[in-house]
Lab assay of single mutants.
Amino acid sequence: MSIQHFRVALIPFFAAFCLPVFAHPETLVKVKDAEDQLGARVGYIELDLNSGKILESFRPEERFPMMSTFKVLLCGAVLSRVDAGQEQLGRRIHYSQNDLVEYSPVTEKHLTDGMTVRELCSAAITMSDNTAANLLLTTIGGPKELTAFLHNMGDHVTRLDRWEPELNEAIPNDERDTTMPAAMATTLRKLLTGELLTLASRQQLIDWMEADKVAGPLLRSALPAGWFIADKSGAGERGSRGIIAALGPDGKPSRIVVIYTTGSQATMDERNRQIAEIGASLIKHW
Rank of each mutant, 00 (worst) to 15 (best):
H24E: 07
H24W: 05
H24M: 08
P25Y: 08
P25A: 12
E26S: 11
E26P: 12
V29E: 15
V29K: 15
V31S: 04
D33G: 02
E35Y: 07
E35C: 14
Q37F: 12
L38E: 13
R41S: 13
R41P: 09
V42L: 04
G43P: 00
I45M: 12
I45F: 14
E46V: 14
E46G: 12
E46D: 15
L47C: 15
D48V: 03
G52F: 07
G52Q: 14
K53L: 13
K53C: 12
S57D: 04
R59M: 13
E61W: 03
E62L: 02
F64R: 01
F64Q: 11
P65A: 11
M66F: 13
M66K: 00
M67S: 12
S68G: 00
T69H: 11
F70Q: 08
K71N: 00
V72G: 06
V72Q: 01
V72E: 02
C75L: 11
C75S: 05
A77D: 08
A77Q: 04
A77W: 12
V78C: 15
L79T: 05
S80M: 14
V82D: 04
Q86P: 08
Q88V: 13
L89A: 10
R91H: 10
Y95I: 03
S96D: 13
Q97T: 06
V101T: 10
Y103S: 03
Y103L: 03
P105I: 02
V106K: 15
E108L: 13
K109G: 06
T112W: 15
T112R: 10
T116Y: 12
T116A: 15
R118Q: 13
E119P: 01
C121W: 00
A124C: 12
I125A: 02
M127T: 13
S128A: 00
N130Q: 15
A133V: 05
A133C: 05
L135N: 06
T139Q: 09
I140A: 15
G141M: 05
F149I: 08
N152Q: 07
M153N: 02
V157M: 03
T158K: 00
R159I: 14
R159D: 12
E166Y: 14
L167Q: 06
N168D: 09
E169G: 05
A170F: 02
I171F: 15
P172C: 09
P172W: 11
R176D: 13
T178E: 04
M180Q: 03
P181R: 00
A183T: 06
M184F: 02
T187R: 15
T187I: 15
L192M: 07
L192N: 02
T193H: 08
L197G: 09
R202W: 07
Q203E: 04
Q203N: 04
D207R: 08
M209Y: 01
M209W: 14
E210I: 15
E210F: 14
V214I: 03
A215P: 12
G216I: 03
P217E: 14
R220N: 09
R220C: 12
S221M: 06
S221Y: 04
G226C: 06
F228H: 15
I229E: 09
D231E: 14
D231A: 08
S233V: 07
S233E: 01
A235C: 15
A235E: 14
R238T: 04
G239P: 01
R241Y: 14
I243D: 13
A246M: 08
A246I: 06
G248V: 01
G248A: 07
P253A: 07
R255K: 03
I256A: 07
V257K: 00
V258M: 02
V258W: 00
Y260K: 01
Q265S: 06
M268T: 13
M268G: 13
D269P: 07
E270M: 01
R273C: 14
Q274F: 03
A276F: 14
E277D: 02
I278P: 00
S281W: 04
S281K: 14
I283Q: 02
K284L: 09
K284W: 08
H285T: 06
W286D: 02
